[in-house]
């Protein structure tokens, strides 16, 4: 887990983005920084997962779910009746991954300890 955050920081500067005081900057500065986070984190997510929407259609389309619908894939909200058919509109299409390829921590005691604490090393430049 720490190592996944480490990838998001390495490629997408996620921690730099979150840990800084966002209130002190205007939207333009935040927007510029957001592009770095978006581009880098997107790359990390695409390396590790194949992300698709749960509902293949468009949002606001209507949908009818039978009694045996997959309750992990679809969350019913609002005025939900006791029994099927469940007729409603898709508010959010949901996300799922069809592939998981997370970086594995190399299995030695020393590395596991480091991997559980260091998210990004301090950079020291030598000229």
């Amino acid at each position: 887990m720490v190592q996944f955050v480490a990838r998001l920081q390495e490629k997408g500067r996620l921690l730099d983005f979150i840990m800084d005081d966002i209130a002190a900057y205007d939207n333009e500065s935040v927007g510029a920084a957001a592009r770095i986070v978006h581009q880098g984190c997107c790359e990390v997510l695409q390396d590790s997962f194949t992300i698709e929407t749960v509902f293949p259609g468009e949002e606001m389309e209507s949908i009818t779910l039978a009694d045996n619908y997959d309750s992990h894939s679809y969350r019913l909200i609002g005025k939900v009746p006791e029994a099927a058919p469940f007729v409603g509109q898709v508010l959010h299409r949901g996300w799922k991954t069809t592939r998981v390829n997370l970086p594995q921590v190399v299995n030695t005691a020393k590395h596991i300890e480091v991997a559980r604490s260091i998210i990004a090393p301090a950079d020291v430049e030598i000229n």
Partner: peptide, 18 residues
């Protein structure tokens, strides 16, 4: 295509070059 170049230090908001 907008491009942002991150700073070398940890301050992303103040020093990002666009």
């Amino acid at each position: 295509y907008p491009i942002s170049i991150p700073s070398r230090g940890s301050s992303l908001f103040a020093k990002t070059i666009t």
